[in-house]
Design a protein around this nucleic acid. Structure first.
Lengths: 126, 126
DNA sequence: CTCTTGTATTGACATCCATCGATTAATGTG
DNA sequence: CACATTAATCGATGGATGTCAATACAAGAG
């Protein structure tokens, strides 16, 4: 299903996700709203365990279920769900239900977009 | 002066700055320490005003003094100093003293390194 | 339907953080 | 030296955040 990504974010329109927020950091002057969204995106990665989750998902070929994450991170299950929710809100990961289990994976365009929000213009200083 | 960058960070060794922390997010599995440093780097950009500061410095050809930043951001002077300290700790900006004034500028390699910590593949959009 | 298992949500709590006022330090000037 | 100006630090405070225990929800199995 090609359009599934559009619906994976449920409540939130794809265009309002922080990962799709604005012009690059080094590009034109940003508005307050753009800066706020970009800050929210960075905030979703501002936690040790969330970075580890993204790294785990990025280096894993298949989606990973919550139970595996709790074991890998050494955290309680509610805490892991909390972090996953933050990453979902940032638009970085997606969720897939398989029976009783919930499998998470990195959105394939997430890291590209994130990198694009930072670097791009390659302003080689003055 | 070519070696000035090495000393601009005073107390902190260049290699310990979050911006020089680790392998890319999508690369190999990260250690706890690497993830911690990378999270600290993102945390330094997880605030609306700090994103605006970086954007201001990135789009400005010359260093900017604190007094200009307080005016641009609409924040008190102690608060701006607080944010600048966080960005310094992340290794993203550098400080230069000119008389009574303190001028800040983006480290020329900061955004490149930041993008490198995220993307790897360097795919220029789809 | 009942029971079990996995996940999400709620509530509480301790800690962290952004902000400002007041003060101190640094740099010049007369 | 005293004085003025700019920036950094200190202390306090209100709000945000990560964590877990307890609970509620979801999806099968019997």
């Amino acid at each position: 299903m090609a359009f599934k990504q559009e619906q994976e974010v449920h409540n939130q329109m794809k265009s309002t996700l922080p990962v799709n927020c604005c012009t690059p950091l080094a590009g034109a002057r940003m508005s307050n709203e753009e800066a706020h969204s970009l800050a929210a995106l960075f905030k979703s990665l501002s936690d040790l365990h969330r970075v580890r989750i993204v790294n785990l998902l990025a280096t894993s070929s298949d989606p990973v279920c919550v139970c595996d994450l709790t074991a890998a991170l050494g955290l309680g299950q509610p805490t892991v769900s909390h972090h996953l929710k933050k990453l979902m809100a940032g638009g970085l990961i997606e969720r897939e239900q398989r029976g009783t289990w919930a499998y998470y994976s990195l959105r394939d365009d997430a890291l590209e977009k994130l990198a694009g929000l930072v670097g791009t213009t390659r302003k080689v200083s003055a």
